[in-house]
Design a protein around this nucleic acid. Sequence first.
DNA 1: CCTCGATGAGACGTATCTGTCTCATGTGGA
DNA 2: TCCACATGAGACAGATACGTCTCATCGAGG
Lengths: 183, 183
Amino acid sequence: MTLDREQVLRSAAALLTHKSTATMDEVAKAAGIGRATLHRHFAGRDALVKALEDLGIQEFEAALDAARLDEGTSEEALRRLIAAVEPSAGLLSFLVTENQLFEGDEINEGWSRADARVSAFFQRGQERGEFRIDLTPAWLTEAVYGLVGSCAWAVQVGRVAAQDFQHMIVELLLGGARRSVER
Amino acid sequence: MTLDREQVLRSAAALLTHKSTATMDEVAKAAGIGRATLHRHFAGRDALVKALEDLGIQEFEAALDAARLDEGTSEEALRRLIAAVEPSAGLLSFLVTENQLFEGDEINEGWSRADARVSAFFQRGQERGEFRIDLTPAWLTEAVYGLVGSCAWAVQVGRVAAQDFQHMIVELLLGGARRSVER
DNA sequence: CCTCGATGAGACGTATCTGTCTCATGTGGA
DNA sequence: TCCACATGAGACAGATACGTCTCATCGAGG
């Protein structure tokens, strides 16, 4: 029986994101496996977290590739990005919440690379006149993380329908909550 | 020397929000006190978390009162809310991240009450035609939490200027990132 | 100057989690 | 059918953090 490594990591992320003090035993049970098996696949807690980071960053970068951020309008690109990120939302939430990415004063290389791509995307959008310039790229980047994490959580607890994930994030991010007659 | 209990709790929240596995010793050092002193004021880790929850909820409800959500336009009320919440942003972030609020299947009463007020505010705004109706009140509520948490973090790491806190959140929340010529 | 109270540092036993091990089970493939 | 291998359950020692304690120090107030 081949263990579904990714499935284990995803359930671990979902659990650890909002209960990061969870025991290895709880992580194992959440994944539907035994603690011994969990240890067989991940040398320890640190290795588990590292695997979560690696997979999360890898999927995030893949999503950035898939979104083709430099094609079409910024709005279209943003929609593609959120769509591409949706399957990895749980992992993303964990990455953002857990700042062990910054351990030892050296920021995780992969993360900073991906982060820079998002930030650069918003900056390009501003330069092309498609995004407001009073909201900094850095903030818009963080806002994306925050909204993705919030929406993933809201979906998880049934507060938002899973099918609305992309709409809720993109619409709020692009247009805001204000109802303007001229839209 | 009277210990500044709130100061201790605020620094604990700032630390625990993004490193919830932090040791009691680390929490104490982050607050600039000894571990023994920390234990003298908070019976244990559980008591510390409980105190964080209590203070956070209390300040959140106070902010909701101060914001007078039912006066003036929804936009004005939202601006007041974010302004009132800013000093408690760190505690809020902790509350949202830590879901021990839901321990034992019984949601914390104070939290659910405050949460309902925010949600009701957005619903009123929708009914008055000031907020879009395609974004559910529950989502807008979660989005507020997410953006407040993200911005508090961004300020903490120097990614966003502290003075921009309110502007960044309110503007994104109300108008979104899209630049529309007719605004 | 003296006293009282709070604090910081550290020692100590305890509880919990960790990481490794063994063993029985059970499932897929030869 | 039999074998190989992965898994789950549990035992076990070691490590780590917890909670409590003592003691010396420091500062405010009398």
